[in-house]
């Protein structure tokens, strides 16, 4: 498991094999402060259908070092665009099963609009920039997931 924090801005990112808690990040963000008005979180899960209808599992590979740095940079970009108080990103790697959480993004802000938009932005950038690769396992064999044009269009909105 790796864990790095950016200085000044309250950003922390983590890449790990083990599962994360559904309330991951709340405590560290809310600890001893009451100026936060909104927390928006996104949790991505493994679907049992994607490129084929019967996905039985997923293997996630990443590029250690570059992954964490990219996630920190995405968090920093979000902080430049919106008034944010904290960003937490946790992404799992290794073998995952349908229903397993893969990724969690938490954004804290004084107001909800910033938090909603920043969370959306972070996911769009994460999907198109962070060096993760998915290999899906289905009853008919395993294959590497192809990038989706729609994800790049989504990221180009910002």
């Amino acid at each position: 498991m790796t864990n790095i924090e950016a200085t000044e801005l309250d950003i922390s990112v983590r890449v790990q094999q083990v599962p994360f808690a559904m309330d991951e990040g709340y405590e560290s963000v809310l600890h001893q402060r009451s100026d936060i008005g909104a927390i928006v979180t996104f949790t991505g899960l493994v679907r049992d259908f994607n490129e084929t209808p019967d996905v039985t599992g997923l293997t996630l590979e990443h590029y250690p070092g570059m992954t964490e740095r990219t996630l920190i940079q995405i968090g920093e970009q979000a902080c430049q665009r919106w008034e944010l108080q904290a960003v937490r990103i946790v992404h799992r790697v290794g073998d995952l099963a349908p229903g397993d959480p893969i990724v969690r993004v938490l954004v804290a802000s004084a107001h909800r609009r910033e938090a909603f938009q920043a969370c959306d932005f972070i996911m769009d950038y994460l999907k198109t920039q962070a060096p993760f690769w998915k290999k899906e396992h289905s009853r008919h064999g395993a294959y590497w997931v192809q990038e989706r044009h729609a994800d790049h269009q989504d990221a180009a909105r910002w």
């Binding site: 790796t2 864990n3 790095i4 094999q17 083990v18 293997t59 996630l60 590979e61 990443h62 590029y63 250690p64 070092g65 570059m66 964490e68 740095r69 790697v93 290794g94 073998d95």
Partner: peptide, 17 residues
């Protein structure tokens, strides 16, 4: 106890191996 990682490379956080 951890399954053999599928990750590539062995860099520690923020450093280039």
């Amino acid at each position: 106890g951890l399954p053999e990682p599928i990750v590539t490379g062995g860099s520690a956080v923020g450093e280039v191996r």
